[in-house]
Amino acid sequence: MATRYFKLSDDVYRSGRWELGKLSDQRGEEVWPALLMRGEPAHIEGRIVAPVKTAGRPLDFSHAAMGIPVVFARAASIFMELAAEDVQFIPVTIEGHPEQYLVLNVTRVVRCIDDQASEEIRYWKADDGRPEKTGQYRAVYGMRIDSSKVGDAKVFRPWGWTVALIVSEEIKDALERIGATGTKFKEV
């Protein structure tokens, strides 16, 4: 039986939840979000700080501003156990919360988007005025992947659309087993 894969995102509709703001480094400068969504190791000196933009219940999985995944230690342990070679954890201090939280940086990219099976794919065109992006994905709606191209990956970002975070059914099931809060899964 083929492995199933899921887009993992932050359940923003969870009632009473917190909302995290923009990440900054130890000097107070904003951490460039794209640095943590490229699918490669990031080099950040010192500890990252995340403000609580909206007070509420802390979550095991949530996004800081611009979709950067932040995980509580128990959720991080799932990724370490099942996909250690494809993740990097960067300590983050969440203002007013002494518990151990980490930025989850997924360091693997897989070329697997199934353009025909996806609901809608848009590409950058030459007349869009961004010649450096011509031919690349501009938008991906209802993304579907070709699981035969994933190989042994259990967590990854899809090539060309690295804003999406994809996990295997094994990781999804493990997060659900521990009752990880804040997770939302959509099969891809």
Rank of each mutant, 00 (worst) to 15 (best):
R4Y: 00
R4P: 03
Y5M: 07
L8P: 02
V12M: 04
Y13C: 01
S15K: 12
S15A: 10
G16T: 06
W18D: 03
E19F: 00
G21F: 01
S24P: 01
E30A: 13
V31I: 15
W32V: 14
W32K: 15
P33L: 02
L35D: 13
L36E: 07
L36T: 09
E40W: 00
I44L: 14
I48L: 11
I48C: 03
A50Y: 06
V52I: 14
V52G: 07
T54A: 08
G56N: 10
D60E: 07
F61Q: 05
A64T: 05
M66I: 00
I68W: 08
I68N: 04
I68R: 04
P69C: 03
V70S: 00
A73H: 12
R74M: 08
R74Q: 12
I78S: 05
F79H: 04
M80C: 05
E81L: 07
E85W: 00
D86F: 01
D86S: 15
V87Y: 03
I90S: 01
V92G: 05
V92D: 02
V92I: 03
P98T: 09
P98N: 08
Q100I: 02
V106I: 15
V106L: 04
T107Q: 09
V109W: 07
R111Y: 11
C112Y: 08
D115S: 11
E119N: 11
E120W: 01
I121V: 15
Y123E: 07
K125V: 13
D128N: 12
G129C: 10
G129N: 12
E132I: 08
G135H: 11
Y137C: 10
R138L: 13
R138H: 12
A139V: 11
M143A: 15
R144K: 15
I145T: 12
S148M: 01
V150H: 10
G151D: 12
D152W: 08
D152C: 06
F156W: 07
R157C: 10
R157D: 03
P158T: 06
L165W: 02
V167F: 04
E169S: 10
E169A: 09
D173W: 05
A174M: 01
L175K: 04
L175R: 04
E176S: 04
G179M: 04
T181K: 09
K184C: 08
K186M: 11
